[in-house]
Amino acid sequence: MSRGEFGAEVGTPRLLDCFARFGITTTWCVPTHTMQTFPDAFEAIVGAGHEVAAHGVYHEYIPALDADEERRLMQLQVDQHVSLTGQRPRGYRSPALDVTPHTLDLLDEFGFDWDSSLMGRDFVPYYPRMVVDFDVERGNSFGPPSRVLEIPVGWALDDFPELESFKGSPLMQSNETVLARWKDSFDFAYERCPGGVITWTLHPQTIGRAHNLVMLEQFIEYVSSRDGIWFPTLSEVCDAWSDERS
C-alpha cells in the first residue's frame, strides 16, 4: 500500500517534472481504481497533456479470470474511464502483461485501436494472433490476425523486474547494468531498424525513486542526442504506423 502511495504522491510528480523539462508527452496506463484513489495525481497527468490508456480496474490478474468476468471488468473500466476522463481509451495494457484467449477479441469488441501487452516483436508494431490449437508434438496453429495493433513490450525494457527490490528479488540488477542494456537496445533499433519503435514500461513507484530517476534522465539525454528521434504517445505511434501502410 505504501509503495503505491509513493508512486502516486512522489513518483508521479517527479516524472511529470522530468517529462516537462525534456518536452516529452507520454502514455500512462492507469487502472481506474488508481484514478479514483489518487484523483489529484491523476488530474496532474491529464492536465500535463499526457495520454491515459486502460490498464484494468484494480490491476487484476487477467489469466485468473473466466470469460464472463474478463468481459465485465473490460466494460467496467471503459465505463469508468469515460466517466473520469470524458473519453474512451484508445489503448490497453494488460496488468502484468498477460492475456487470455479472449482478450484480443474483447479489445476489438470494445473498440480499442491498440494493445501494448505482448512480446511477439521488439521494435516493430504488428497485428497479433492467438494460438488456437496447442500441440507440443506437431506444432501450434494460429488464428487470424487481430484488428487491434500491437505495440510490443519486453521485460528487459520494464523497470520493475530489475530495479524493484521486491522481497529480495534475484532479478534485481545494478542501475549501471540496466542503463547499459537500455542504451544497447536503443542503439540497435536506431542503427538497424529504421522507423522502429521502442516501448519502455515505467512504474512511478519504481522509476520515481531518486537513484532510478537519475538513471532515466541520463538515458533520455542519451537518446535525445541523436538526430531524428521522436517521443510519441502510443496512440500517436498507432496513427503514424497505420498511416505509413495505408
Rank of each mutant, 00 (worst) to 15 (best):
L171T: 14
T34D: 14
T233A: 06
C18D: 10
C18E: 11
G86T: 10
R129E: 02
L76W: 04
Y92Q: 07
S2T: 13
G208R: 11
A41D: 01
L73W: 05
T100M: 01
G47E: 03
R14S: 04
E5M: 10
W182S: 00
F110K: 07
A48T: 05
Q205F: 15
L15A: 09
Q218E: 15
E150I: 08
D122P: 07
F134W: 12
R21M: 12
P39L: 03
L179M: 09
L84V: 11
P31K: 08
F231V: 09
G91L: 06
A44M: 06
C29I: 09
F231K: 04
T26F: 06
P95V: 06
F123N: 05
S169L: 03
E191A: 13
G154W: 02
Y127T: 06
R226G: 08
S2G: 09
F19M: 11
E60L: 07
Y190M: 05
V78W: 00
E236I: 01
D184R: 13
Q205S: 15
R14D: 05
W28E: 03
R209P: 00
P161R: 00
R245Y: 09
D113E: 15
F22P: 06
F19Q: 05
Q75G: 11
E217V: 01
R121S: 15
R71Y: 11
D133E: 15
W182G: 01
A96Q: 11
D105E: 15
R71V: 12
P95H: 05
R21C: 12
F160P: 00
W230M: 12
H55E: 13
R21W: 11
P152F: 02
W28F: 15
F134P: 04
L16E: 06
S246K: 15
L149A: 07
A210V: 13
E69P: 03
Y222A: 07
E150Y: 03
R21E: 14
V223E: 02
T25L: 12
T26H: 05
P232Q: 03
R3M: 09
L202M: 15
G154R: 02
F160T: 13
R90F: 08
A54T: 04
G4H: 11
T37G: 08
A240E: 07
R226F: 14
M130K: 09
